[in-house]
Design a binder for these strands. Structure first.
Length: 108
DNA sequence: CCCTGATTCGC
DNA sequence: GCGAATCAGG
C-alpha cells in the first residue's frame, strides 16, 4: 500500500478535475475514505467546511482487522514499450486521458 | 435508499 | 502516513 507518485498524481488530477472521491477510489482500488484521508494529508481537500461531525468520543471498542491485510499480488507489467514514462510538468488533458485509459485497461 | 465529503482513531 | 470507522448532509 504505497502511494506512488502516479497514484497521488492521478488522485490529485482526478480530484481537481472534479471527480468524486468514490470514483477516484474505485479507479485506484481504494476506499473513498482512503482517498479523502490521503487528500487531507496532502493538504488539498475541497471545502474547508466546519467540523460537521462532532468529535465523537471514540465509542468503538473493537473496530475490526484493518490495514493488517495489505497484500497486493498484482505485478505491474504495463508499458513494455516505454520503460521511462516521465511527466516532468503538468499533465495535459490528452496525457491525463492517456494515463487514465492505460490505468483502467491494465486494472480492469 | 443511494451517494457525497469530512473528521477522528488505531496501527 | 495509511486505511477504516463514523458522522452529517444531499
Amino acid at each position: 500500500m504505497g502511494w506512488d507518485a502516479k497514484d497521488v498524481a492521478l488522485l490529485k488530477k482526478l480530484w481537481a478535475d472534479g471527480h468524486s472521491a468514490g470514483q477516484i477510489a474505485s479507479r485506484l482500488g481504494l476506499s473513498r475514505n482512503a482517498v479523502s484521508a490521503k487528500l487531507q494529508r496532502l493538504g488539498q481537500k475541497r471545502g474547508r467546511k466546519p467540523p460537521t461531525a462532532n468529535p465523537r468520543i471514540v465509542s468503538v471498542p473493537k473496530r475490526k482487522v484493518a490495514q493488517l491485510a495489505c497484500a497486493r499480488p498484482a505485478d505491474k507489467v504495463v508499458s513494455p514499450r516505454k520503460p521511462a514514462a516521465t511527466q516532468p510538468k503538468e499533465f495535459t488533458k490528452r496525457q491525463l486521458y492517456a494515463m487514465l485509459v492505460d490505468a483502467v485497461r491494465n486494472t480492469g
